[in-house]
Design a protein around this nucleic acid. Structure first.
Length: 275
DNA sequence: AAATCACACAACCGCAAGGGG
DNA sequence: GCCCCTTGCGGTTGTGTGATT
């Protein structure tokens, strides 16, 4: 039976948040008849929703495989890594994070990562910000994962999203980075060569030279070692990181590290042409 | 206690690709 | 080749909630 177009089927479309009743109806229908033909789902299930809306609700919320809750450290690292390669290819990135939806990853990027760029008053697509992410945040994240594992805690332990320490204490590290770059022996990786508007497939993995890697589902690797190590410089305060009980607690202390002073300091580094 | 603000997440919208008739 | 429909994607907006004033 041809159920016609979306507009024909749903004349009085309901929008906004889904109710529990609607969720139950959709869940029951999809579990019985399977996914696909979303306009038909909306029609036959008696939902005053568009097919699009039903599909989105199912994929992002009702699907049994959907993992909810905070993004783990490892997931954060994968997101940063894959975004550096592919840019805003959220669905592609989501395929490497089982149970996570493109919408969730997109939201994570916007609320966490872009927030940091905003605080630093630099463009999220700028080379400076990419370098900060690549040389500071990602190595720190990797260190925290290793620290968690060495403590016998699962690396996938989620942290409080509001207290995410990933972006903490960047100023001090950036200062070190800057000083090390003045070292004649400093040999950075070739520039990613990413223009502000290009997020193409051709992007190069920023951690391709890391000493320790783990395998991504596509067979490529993602660094878990110190990203700075292969460049001949160390992340200062590493011992503190390794020994800190704050590491994965998501405590308030982390928030205090990402304070105005650090932001101001990092801005100075970012505004420096040498960086 | 009320108002305001900031944040995280859910949902919508427009567009493009792909497939079938 | 064209049209229509469905699906998927990325950008954007809306909403709920907790924190702050």
């Amino acid at each position: 039976m041809d159920v016609g177009s979306e507009n024909e089927m749903v004349t009085d479309v309901k929008k906004g948040p889904w109710t529990e009743e609607e969720d139950a109806v959709l869940r029951t229908y999809v579990e019985t008849h399977g996914e696909g033909r979303w306009n038909s789902v909306a029609y036959f299930a008696g939902l005053r929703r568009t097919g699009k809306s039903c599909r989105l609700r199912w994929l992002n919320y009702l699907r049994p495989q959907v993992r909810r809750g905070n993004i783990s450290l490892e997931e954060q690292l994968i997101i940063l890594e894959l975004h550096s390669r592919w840019g805003n290819r959220w669905s592609k990135i989501a395929k490497h994070l089982p149970g996570r939806t493109d919408n969730e990853i997109k939201n994570y990027w916007r609320t966490r990562v872009q927030k940091q760029a905003k605080q630093l008053k630099c463009d999220v697509n700028s080379q400076q910000f990419r370098d900060t992410m690549r040389y500071v945040w990602m190595p720190r994240l990797a260190e925290r994962i290793r620290a968690a594992e060495s403590k016998g805690r699962p690396a996938c332990l989620p942290i409080s999203s509001s207290n995410d320490p990933t972006f903490d204490d960047v100023g001090a590290h950036t200062a070190e980075l800057k000083s090390d770059r003045k070292d004649p022996s400093f040999m950075p990786e070739p520039s990613l060569g990413i223009s502000s508007d290009s997020c193409s497939e051709a992007q190069v993995s920023p951690v391709s030279g890391l000493t320790e890697c783990y395998n991504l589902p596509d067979g490529s690797t993602c660094g878990l070692g110190s990203g700075a190590g292969h460049l001949g410089w160390d992340i200062p305060g590493q011992e503190d990181i390794m020994s800190s009980e704050l590491l994965l607690d998501g405590g308030d202390s982390w928030d205090s590290l990402w304070n105005e002073e650090n932001i101001w300091f990092l801005r100075q580094q970012l505004s420096d042409d040498h960086f």
